[in-house]
Every structure is written in C-alpha cells, then in structure tokens.
Amino acid sequence: MIVIITGASHTGKTALAQKFLEAYHYPVLSIDLLKMGLIRSRQTELTPDDDLELEYYLWPIVSEMIKTAIENNQNLIVEGCYIPARWYTSFTEEYLKHIHSYCLVMSQDYIKGNFDSIKEFASVIESRLDDSWCTLESTLTENAAYENAFVESKYQKVIYIDTDYDVSNCLEDFNDDSKT
C-alpha cells in the first residue's frame, strides 16, 4: 500500500508521515530529502527555491518509484509538496487501487488564528535552518492554492484543518480502507 501526503509548507506533512510510520511501520520517502540529495550532489542546477520546476523534475522520478513499490508489493509513505494536483494521471487503475492520498489544507481562519503555533511546530520532525521566508501572507496564499488545486476526487482526500489541528482521521480512514 502507498500513502501519499501532500499540502502546503507547514501543514504537517512530515509529522503525519511520522504518525503513519509509527502506526504501520511503512518506510517514508521524503521528497524534500530526495530534492536536497539531487541538488547537493549537483545532479540538477535547480535550487530549493525553484518550486514549480522541482515539481516537474521530481514527480516523474517519484511516480516511477511508487510504481516499482507497488509492483514489488512494498508499502511506502511518500510525503512532500512536489506532488502535482493531478498526480493520479501518472497511474493506471491497477496502480491507483494501491494508493491512498491525502492533501493537508489549513483554512484562512485557522492560519490567522494560529500562525504563531504553525511557525512554532515547523521543526517538530525536521530542523528548518532558515524559516524566515514563511510569513502569514505566504502561508495564506500557499494554502489557498492547494485548496483550489486539490479538489476532492475519488483518488485523493483533502484534509481540511479549520478549528483544531487533528489529522488522526487520516490514520482512521486509512485503517478502515485498508481492511476492505
């Protein structure tokens, strides 16, 4: 089984991946780690600031890794923001039946009321050396973009964080779906 977790920066993708790891013992593929490995090894001229270009560069690699995991009956959690909104077009129905996808989106009100906490928890799993680029305005804009792009479909679930930060329903949903 494959679990894809995407969403805007600071929505808790890595923390949710960690919860899946602890609950199901699936290995985690962090697209950010792949990105930095390719950048630091000079396998690409892209930089960490080239978000859209990185999505186009990384997704073909990641989608083929997902296919390989499915073909080998391996479980895998894939988390990161470099996942296109129409990621599912990279797979046939045979592959899609092995994939659960979640997109974390924070509401405008949640962000405005909890921005200090959002910033405080930014390094709960991984250290962010410089987080100064993350502003209230950038967080509002990025979440709105994900909300608009990742509309619910039969292939992905948008987890809307509006009143409190509780994404445990992803684990419950996955557990219920994986039994069928």
Rank of each mutant, 00 (worst) to 15 (best):
A8H: 08
D32L: 05
I161F: 14
S123E: 05
Y88H: 12
K154E: 02
Y102A: 06
P84E: 06
S123G: 03
I83C: 03
R128I: 11
M1F: 03
Y146I: 10
D176H: 00
R42D: 13
D173S: 01
A23G: 03
L21P: 01
V28C: 02
P48F: 06
T180N: 00
I161Q: 08
I125M: 09
W59D: 06
M36S: 04
N143T: 14
I2L: 10
L29A: 01
S107K: 11
M106S: 10
P60T: 15
D109H: 11
M36V: 04
W87A: 09
Y95R: 02
I159C: 03
F121K: 12
G12Y: 10
I39T: 14
E93D: 15
E94P: 02
L34I: 08
E147C: 08
L29N: 01
L16D: 09
L16G: 03
K179H: 00
N169I: 14
V3C: 01
A8C: 14
Y24S: 01
R128N: 04
H98P: 02
K112Q: 14
A69T: 04
D177E: 13
A122W: 04
A149T: 05
Y102V: 13
G12A: 14
S132P: 01
L34A: 01
P84G: 06
Y110H: 11
R42W: 10
G80D: 08
D32Q: 06
L52R: 09
A17F: 03
Q18H: 11
Y24Q: 02
I31P: 02
